[in-house]
C-alpha cells in the first residue's frame, strides 16, 4: 500500500530497512509501548520486540551517546529525539562527539547513526516549536535532511539509515498527518495538493544532496525546505494568477546541498527568494543567499530575499505565533517586491 502521509512513509522506511539489516536498532523516549509521540514507530515494538525497539529513560545525552557508542561498534542505530528542541540537551554528543569522531580518529571508524526529530511551530510555544536545521548544518561532520513529502521522506530515510555518517533527520509536525494520542494532531496534510507525493510500497532510495524541483517556472526561484515547500507552492498559485511563474526548489537535504540545482535555476530566473521556518539570522537562507552572491551574482536581476521566522523565540499566543512565522502571504509579498510588482 502506498503511504499518503509522512508518518506512514517513515514507518515503512524503518520496516523495510529493519527487515533488510539486523544491525538496525531503534531507541528513544516513548517509541515502544507508547508507539512514539508522533506515531512514527507505531507497531514496531510488537513487530521487532524489545531487543530492537528500545524505550529509553528521558536522557537525551544517553540516547545519542549510547547510539554513538553502538554505531562505532557495529550497530546502525536510529535514535528518536522527541522534539528537535530537546537536542539541546544532547548537543555535546551530537556536535562534539558524533560529528567529529571520524576525523579525530583519523578515519579509523565511522558513525552510522540517524537522529530523527520533529520540528516546527504548532502552538506549543518557544521550547517545542523551533526549526533548528542551521544548528546542525553549521557543524562539519553532520548531514542534515528535511523531507517535505511522503515520497521524499521514505526514500531519504532509507538512504540516511544506509549512510555511514551521523545524519540529523528533521520531520515537520504538521506534515506527519498522524492522529495524536490525545486526539487528532494538528495537521495541514489534507489541504496540500499533489506536491505532497505519496510514497509507493517497495524499494527506492533518494540520494542525499540531490534536490528536487517541486514546480517549474521561469520568473523567480524559490528555495524552500520542509513544510515551507508547501507554503511556497500556495504562494506560487497566487502569483501565477498575476502572471509570475515561480520555480520551487526543494533541496531536501541541507547538508550536503545541491548547489548546482539552485545555480542552474538562477540562470533561468535571475531572481531568488529563500524560505525557511527557522529564524533568518545566520540560517540556511543566509547560506543560500551567500551561494547566490558568490557563485551566481551575475545571474541576479534583483536582490535576494529571505522569508524566515522573526529573530524571536516562538510566542504562545496564536496571533503572535502567526506573526513570527513565514507564511504564504509573506512569500507572495517578497516575490512581488523583487519582481517589481
Amino acid at each position: 500500500m502506498e503511504s499518503t502521509r509522512i508518518v506512514q512513509a517513515l514507518r515503512q522506511a524503518l520496516i523495510e530497512e529493519m527487515d533488510r539489516d539486523e544491525n538496525i536498532v531503534l531507541l528513544g523516549e516513548d517509541i515502544g509501548v507508547f508507539n512514539g509521540s508522533y506515531r512514527v514507530t507505531e507497531g514496531l515494538l510488537d513487530k521487532y520486540g524489545e531487543r530492537r525497539v528500545k524505550d529509553t529513560p528521558i536522557s537525551e545525552i544517553a540516547i545519542v551517546g549510547a547510539a554513538v557508542g553502538a554505531a562505532m561498534t557495529g550497530l546502525r542505530p536510529v535514535a528518536e529525539i522527541q522534539f528537535n528542541d530537546f537536542m539541546g540537551c544532547a548537543m555535546d554528543q551530537i556536535c562534539n562527539q558524533a560529528a567529529k569522531i571520524r576525523l579525530m580518529m583519523g578515519g579509523q571508524v565511522s558513525v552510522p547513526l540517524v537522529i530523527r526529530a520533529p520540528y516546527g511551530a504548532t502552538g506549543r510555544a518557544a521550547q517545542h516549536s523551533q526549526s533548528l536545521e542551521a544548528w546542525f548544518a553549521h557543524v562539519p561532520g553532520l548531514k542534515v535532511v528535511m523531507p517535505s513529502t511522503p515520497y521524499d521522506a521514505k526514500g531519504l530515510l532509507k538512504t540516511a539509515i544506509r549512510d555511514n555518517n551521523p545524519v540529523v533527520f528533521l520531520e515537520h509536525k504538521l506534515l506527519y498527518g498522524a492522529a495524536s494520542p490525545g486526539g487528532k494532531a494538528k495537521s495541514v496534510v489534507d489541504e496540500l495538493d499533489q506536491t505532497f507525493r505519496p510514497a509507493p510500497e517497495g524499494e527506492y532510495t533518494i540520494e542525499l544532496g540531490k534536490g528536487d524541483i517541486k514546480r517549474q517556472g521561469g520568473d523567480v526561484t524559490i528555495v524552500a525546505v520542509g513544510y515551507m515547500v508547501h507554503r511556497a507552492v500556495q504562494a506560487a498559485k497566487v502569483l501565477a494568477e498575476e502572471g509570475i511563474e515561480c520555480e520551487i526548489l526543494d533541496p531536501r537535504t541541507i547538508v550536503p546541498l545541491d548547489t548546482e540545482l539552485i545555480l542552474n535555476s538562477l540562470k533561468k530566473t535571475g531572481r531568488l527568494v529563500v524560505v525557511t521556518e527557522s529564524v533568518g539570522r545566520c540560517g540556511f537562507a543566509a547560506e543560500v543567499a551567500a551561494l547566490a552572491s558568490e557563485e551566481g551574482l551575475f545571474e541576479l536581476d534583483a536582490p535576494v530575499r529571505r522569508v524566515c521566522a522573526e529573530n524571536s523565540p516562538i510566542p504562545f499566543a496564536p496571533c503572535c505565533e502567526a506573526d513570527a512565522l513565514p507564511d504564504t502571504g509573506k512569500i507572495v509579498k517578497a516575490v512581488r517586491e523583487i519582481c517589481g510588482k
Binding site: 544517553a62 554513538v68 557508542g69 550497530l75 562527539q97
Partner: peptide, 25 residues
C-alpha cells in the same frame, strides 16, 4: 580503544553504547 575524549564525561555514554552493542550481538 574507542577514544580519548576532550570533553569531560564525553566517553561514558559511548561505553554504555558499546556495551549495548555487545549485548545485542
Amino acid at each position: 580503544m574507542l577514544g580519548a575524549n576532550g570533553i569531560v564525561g564525553g566517553g561514558l555514554p559511548h561505553a554504555a553504547g558499546a556495551a549495548w552493542s555487545s549485548q545485542y550481538r
